[in-house]
Structure formats: structure tokens, C-alpha cells
Amino acid sequence: MDKIKVTNVSHYYQDGVKKKRVLKDINVEFETGKFYAILGESGSGKTTMLSLISGLDTYQEGEITFNDKTVKEIGLNNYRLKYVNIIFQSYNLIPYMTAIENVIIMMDIMKLKYKNKKERALKILNSLGIDNDTASRTVLKLSGGEQQRVAIARSLVGDVPFIMADEPTGNLDEDTEEKIISIFKDLVKKGKGVIVVTHSKKVAQNADVVLNIKGGDIK
């Protein structure tokens, strides 16, 4: 079982001449095989929290470790490449590429040595409900739900222990939201750790652990 441990993490933003604290003395642990939902009002610090534990941003105080090794030691880029994958509300797909190509580029970035990358990408996409025809279209021609599934497929190719998502269902209708939640739950069953920042009560209801952030602190 892999573990991300957050110890006494505080984080600040420079607001003009003032230093504004967005997170204060956060202590929390995330394990694989569990579905975490981080809730909070806008500006509460939940996205900052996700940026720090996903390695998109560097923490200023305290320590974040992956299996007892600090993220700084691992290196942010290396950490993002090997241990976590992030899914964004706006999917963050490369617009001029097809769904398959978006998945394949992740394999290229991770230097994964699959004999047939296209076949492997299609297998993942098919498992998330994207058929071959849809997979061959450029992502701009896909619906929001399809794009989000392509983004999830991309995060699954590397078989990283943690999948993190920022408002993954924010732009989706209820049916599609349910499908995405179902995919997350399946991933958890397969031993992945899923951490989702959300406003959605439905996502929170399906999570194993719900963390409420208020005023930069976990309540």
C-alpha cells in the first residue's frame, strides 16, 4: 500500500505587499485503495491543497512525503510522472490530437515500452466507454463527458498509485457525473488512491473519506 503523508504543511500567497496564508498546519494521510473527497467553499484552499499533494506546486512549510520519501527529494516532475496523475475540470487534453493520441503521448512522456501503444490506448479508452470511432476523433469534437473520460484514460496508462482530480464533474450533467464516479470507484477497487476536490455532494457521498477545508484548515 502506497501512502502520501502531509505533515504540518502551511502555504502562503503573496497578495501585493501582504503575505496571505491559504493553508495552515495541515496534517493528513492518503492511502491507495481509498476514495477521498476534499470539500470546501471557493477560496478555502482545497485546490491549493491538491496542487501541493499532486506536485504541481512546491509547499513552503512542513513536509509532504510519498512512502516516507519527501516530494522535494523525489523531484516535482518525477513525482508527477511516476506516482500521481491529475485530472482537471477542463480536461486538459491536447486539442489538435485524437483521443487515442492524447493517451499515447502520456505513454511517450512516461517512456512506457508497450509493443502496440495504440492497442493499449484503445483498450483503456474502451474500458471507460469510449468506442474506437470516438477514440479516433480529435478531442475537440467530443462531448464534455467523453473528454473527461479521455483525461481519466490518460491518467491510467502509467499505472500510477494515485489519481487526483480537480472538480472532474464540474462541467458534466448528472448522468455523466454518475458514470465518472463509477469509474473512480472501479479504480479504487483496483487498488488506486483517488483524491477528488469537489463541490459535488454526490461525489462526497461516494467517497470513503471526506475532508472539509475551511479557512485553510481541515475540519
Partner: peptide, 13 residues
């Protein structure tokens, strides 16, 4: 810029 951010976010050097 967006593509750049995505690639960096995915861990590309």
C-alpha cells in the same frame, strides 16, 4: 500556452 501547461502538468521535461 495551454498545451505547454498540460505537458508540464503531465510531467514532461
Amino acid at each position: 500556452n495551454y498545451e505547454l501547461g498540460v505537458l508540464l502538468g503531465l510531467g514532461e521535461k
